[in-house]
Nucleic acid binder design. Structure first.
Length: 256
DNA sequence: GTTGAGCGTT
């Protein structure tokens, strides 16, 4: 009765979905269940995990049966420390399949459209999102940011008094959006002074500039008669390792 | 597994 998300969604109709963010990578649904269940009837808990590694992505979805309980859980568990990490609880904005959600309430099921009209290859969608880093631009287009971006979210908790009305901040989010973009430009200028000067000479990067010019450790030592295995070792030894490594199937040490 | 902005599966 604790395996949420494995047996599939039991019944998410008319349920309130909460999004739990900032949870540790080790936090599981079973860990969140007793926490959220104390504040209301938890219908289901699901933690998206990575297709590649299978580990948690750092956030979870908790579905409540009643809105008041969900709202209470948000206010209670938001900012609470779980497993040594501070979690962020808020109403989900998007449905499991972009379904209609009204204030976190799921009206329809994602299976509802699973007939024969528009079933696209979702696998293609999954493999593309290797990194979920800042790929949420799509959300900004429509809903903007209802809170300050970045680490400023701490301020949001202090304003928890207004949390009862998540609609108030629609107008405020717009002003910050422009600011964050400007920030990015400044970063590029400061971090990476692009040099367009026609310098005939190239940057002193003997490391990766010309691996061919890096000389073969073997030939150099033989010619210069300076073994200097100390500095020639890292390159020669590492290269040799790669060559031998993937072919050890045949060689059986028979030890262990 | 230190990092961490951010919305989901049978």
């Amino acid at each position: 009765m604790s395996h949420f998300g494995r047996s599939g969604p039991p019944d998410i109709t008319d349920t309130y979905s909460l999004l739990v963010l900032n949870i540790t990578f080790r936090t599981t649904a079973d860990d969140l269940f007793p926490l959220f269940d104390k504040y209301g009837k938890v219908v289901d808990i699901f933690i998206p995990r990575d297709r590649r590694t299978g580990d948690s992505r750092g956030f979870a979805f908790v579905r409540y049966k009643y809105a008041d309980e969900a709202q209470k859980a948000v206010e209670r568990l938001d900012g609470r420390v779980v497993d040594g990490r501070e979690i962020t609880v808020q109403f989900a904005k998007y449905g499991p399949n972009a379904e209609r959600i009204h204030k976190g309430r799921i009206i329809e099921r994602y299976q509802d459209q699973g007939t024969d009209l528009e079933v696209e290859h979702r696998d293609d969608h999954y493999r593309d999102r290797d990194y979920r880093k800042r790929s949420r631009s799509r959300s900004v287009e429509r809903y903007e940011r209802e809170r300050y971006r970045g680490r400023d979210r701490d301020s949001r908790r202090r304003s928890r008094t207004y949390s009862v009305s998540p609609e108030y901040s629609k107008d405020r989010g717009r002003g910050r959006y422009d600011d964050e973009r400007r920030s990015r430009s400044r970063s590029v200028d400061s971090a990476s002074p692009v040099r367009h000067s026609p310098s005939p000479r190239r940057s002193p990067s003997p490391a990766k500039d010309s691996p061919l010019r890096g000389e073969s450790p073997g030939r150099r030592s033989r010619d210069g008669r300076s073994p200097t295995p100390r500095s020639a070792s890292p390159q020669g030894r590492r290269a040799a390792s790669y060559s031998q490594s993937p072919r050890n199937s045949d060689v059986d040490v028979s030890s262990e």
